[in-house]
């Protein structure tokens, strides 16, 4: 599976410890049930202009411990409905990582240092690399755990459950 898109960095820098409160603030997640409306507030507290910079198919790029904090599934949901096609970070917090694959969102661990806002990237999952076409560089990516590959292939946990009638991992 190959995906192409532009890198979008909250605050236009590689930021560590982006928590799920920043991805979607508590004051929105409680009162907005429509994920399309929720997505308009993605990253608002950290970078109020982030949503307006997004184009369909962009990759969200960050540093270590992305998605730490609250278990809110509205965080990966806001990312998904903001038309971001993958999250690339140096490392992920556990609950967020799991929630991504449960929603069928690709989360990739890679050394993101050096990726700049707007860089054209190609994710080559089978080849285990990201090609930064703007900078003409290749970045190695960590292989996806088999469980996550299964969930992703099924299109998320809801589809997995509908298909298998329970966990088949």
């Amino acid at each position: 599976m190959n995906l192409t898109g532009k890198a979008k960095l909250p605050t236009k820098k590689i930021v560590n410890d982006i928590n799920t409160d920043y991805v979607i603030s508590g004051r929105y997640k409680f009162k907005i049930q429509d994920p399309v409306e929720l997505a308009k507030h993605v990253m608002e507290d950290l970078d109020p202009e982030f949503y307006s910079r997004l184009e369909k198919g962009d990759f969200l790029v960050a540093g270590t411990n992305f998605g730490c904090g609250s278990s809110r599934e509205q965080a990966p949901m806001a990312i998904k409905y903001a038309n971001i096609s993958a999250v690339i970070a140096k490392s992920f917090a556990r609950i967020f990582y799991r929630n991504c694959f449960n929603l069928g969102i690709l989360a990739i661990e890679a050394d993101t240092d050096g990726i700049k806002e707007g860089d054209e990237l190609e994710i080559d999952l089978n080849g285990g690399k990201i090609i930064n076409e703007t900078q003409n560089k290749e970045i190695k990516i960590a292989p996806l755990p088999p469980t996550m590959q299964t969930l992703l292939a099924d299109g998320g946990l809801v589809e997995h459950f509908k298909k298998h009638g329970g966990f088949k991992i």
């Binding site: 278990s71 609950i95 929630n99 998320g156 809801v158 459950f161």
Partner: peptide, 20 residues
């Protein structure tokens, strides 16, 4: 341990969850 909403739904339906 904390999990997301869809994991909770899966747990409610099956009484189980997968763990590493």
């Amino acid at each position: 341990t904390g999990i997301g909403s869809t994991d909770l739904a899966a747990g409610m339906i099956s009484g189980k969850l997968w763990f590493k």
